[in-house]
Design a protein around this nucleic acid. Structure first.
Lengths: 223, 223
DNA sequence: ACCTGAACACCGTTCAAGT
DNA sequence: ACCTGAACACCGTTCAAGT
């Protein structure tokens, strides 16, 4: 696509590649993020990528690191542990939300990137303060972070690239299929149909289930 | 691999393909599930698959349906809503747990397969009985089902095929990396290191976080 | 109804070579 | 240090054809 010229010469870098990979994933999905495709966008041979990344896995690692490093962690405070926990989870979610197709990559580098370790440390510290022994805190904390990815993933169907109009058609189809169900067998599905088909772009979905999780941790403590 | 003979002749069917796809995904990961690979295992041309599936997406749909249909839903009872909810989520989790590499496919067919609709209906019904309006029940229910996939996925890193010994090496490396962290910066990570690296095959992890979720729903109801 | 054969446009990656 | 070129073993899929 973009041919190389003097302006861009020698400017092929890890960062430039990762930035374009992010926007490519955002627009066309993770399966469009391809060594060859990225090379083409930078006006370069596919093999040029192997100077900057040892293989595709390390490219994906780079994407994950990039995501994780963007998290703006709130400063530790005197607030109660559950409020602080919620704030940290929210900060993480807010960062990955704009990149639902990339969110799934985050977990692979949480315990590798420094920024990820800091997140883990804070979460584990708060759970420890809440009274959970270290092993328990690890299990809960892991699940909580995974859950942010789950929330960010949003659309449950990791299917083909939803083109702008193809996507709307899909939603209409989905809605029509639910509405055509026998009401005697599926009364609750039909009642919930509108909320089941709209992708939950709504902050509502995120806030509600973030609450669910934090309340869940408090509930665990009570036994 | 397996050449066709009289015993298997004409026995190439949707079901046979799906069954081998499941075991292939279990042993080598979802990325090993390939039209060509499956054809080869059945001693057949890749193009033969297109008689039984319109494309690869529909093969994956078939895998998802196969998973969902295997769920043994507990019969409705007079037990409190939260106990029943927990039982349903547990039944779903128990079915997908043996197939962590396939678990992610489940969501794409929950609202399409009959068995999936039945699960949705039951979950939504219980949430309705708990007092949540339909839209809220939809958001919570969607998240709860997604969470079972998250739990089943287990290993947060959906990386390359963890060969039997390569996997153990990876765990050792991961452990070593965590243990080499500066204790002053990451005291809680280090304290939790053992629990962070072992994959949570343990029922503990599942039961704990299932409790977290159910308690969370109860917490939401209290407001 | 069920399958083959050749072909096309894609992948990731290795190896040797250029500047 | 950074990139090219040719080649290899893979993908999914279409189209025409066989039985």
């Amino acid at each position: 696509m973009a041919k190389r010229n003097e302006a861009t010469r020698g400017r092929l870098s890890r960062d430039a590649i990762i930035v374009s990979a992010v926007s490519l994933a955002d627009s066309e999905g993770l399966e469009a993020v391809t060594i060859r495709r990225l090379a083409q966008e930078h006006g370069v041979t596919p093999m040029a990528m192997y100077w900057h990344f040892t293989d595709k896995e390390s490219l994906l690692d780079g994407l994950a690191d990039h995501l994780i490093e963007a998290v703006r962690l709130p400063a530790p405070s005197d607030a109660p542990w559950d409020e602080q926990l919620r704030a940290i989870l929210h900060a993480f979610l807010a960062t990955i939300r704009p990149h639902p197709r990339l969110a799934g990559l985050a977990m692979r580098r949480i315990l590798a990137a420094e920024a990820g370790l800091m997140i883990a440390e804070r979460v584990l510290g708060l759970l420890h303060r809440a009274g959970f022994p270290a092993a328990r805190a690890a299990e809960i904390g892991t699940f909580l972070i995974c859950s942010m990815v789950t929330l960010a993933n949003g659309e449950p169907a990791p299917g083909p690239p939803p083109s702008v109009e193809g996507r709307e058609q899909m939603l209409r189809d989905k809605r029509a299929r639910l509405d055509s169900l026998p009401p005697s067998r599926y009364p609750n599905v039909i009642a919930a149909a509108p909320a089941l088909v709209v992708c939950r772009d709504e902050d509502d979905y995120f806030a509600l289930n973030l609450d669910l999780l934090v309340q869940g941790v408090r509930g665990l403590r009570r036994g």
